[in-house]
């Protein structure tokens, strides 16, 4: 940057209105040009002192350490803190709508399947009632009447015909 450009940019620099690249160029110029520095001091003495100072560079490996911390934090968040409430708060409106639609469709499908399955359920429920009259006849197990006491068939028969209905 030459002196005329630097002098033109001083006011914008002091207002903080200079774009970043022009600002850097002006600061570099001011550090090497006593005339422009004196011009700056005439307008803002503090700026003329501070512009000469050097800030140490970013410590070596800073970005690596930030990323390592970020990775560690991300994995902790995923492993520990998933909760539907948090998800609901963080999700956008379309996600809310999609979740609600999935819920409604799921409920409707559940009701439909339940309704379709009702006749079969009634039929299954009716079968033991018929058997309760005479399970041996209903299940055509008359041949088990001849089974000796203590045999496997005898035990099964006893269970089937017991009065508390355990056999059914």
């Amino acid at each position: 940057m030459d002196c005329p450009t630097a002098q033109t940019n001083l006011s914008a620099y002091l207002r903080g209105d200079l774009p970043l690249d022009q600002r850097s160029a002006l600061v570099a110029h001011l550090r090497g040009c006593r005339i422009c520095l004196v011009s700056l001091a005439a307008v803002d003495p503090l700026a003329s002192v501070l512009v000469q100072t050097e800030t140490p560079p970013v410590p070596s490996g800073f970005e690596t350490r930030v990323l390592a911390a970020a990775r560690s934090r991300r994995s902790q968040v995923v492993a520990v803190a998933w909760s539907p409430l948090r998800w609901w708060r963080m999700a956008s409106a379309p996600m809310h709508a999609a979740a609600a639609a999935v819920l409604v469709v799921g409920l409707a499908a559940g009701l439909a399947i339940g309704w379709a399955a009702q006749p079969a359920a009634r039929q299954i429920a009716a079968t033991p009632a018929t058997a309760a009259v005479d399970p041996l006849a209903a299940y055509k197990l008359d041949y088990l009447n001849d089974a000796p006491d203590g045999s496997l068939a005898g035990t099964y028969l006893a269970l089937l015909t017991s009065p508390n209905g355990e056999g059914q």
Binding site: V58, E63, A70
Partner: peptide, 16 residues
Amino acid sequence: LFAFAQLVLRHQAEAW
């Protein structure tokens, strides 16, 4: 995290 790394590289000097 790659996008995050780019932001860190671009702006670490300001934050520091």
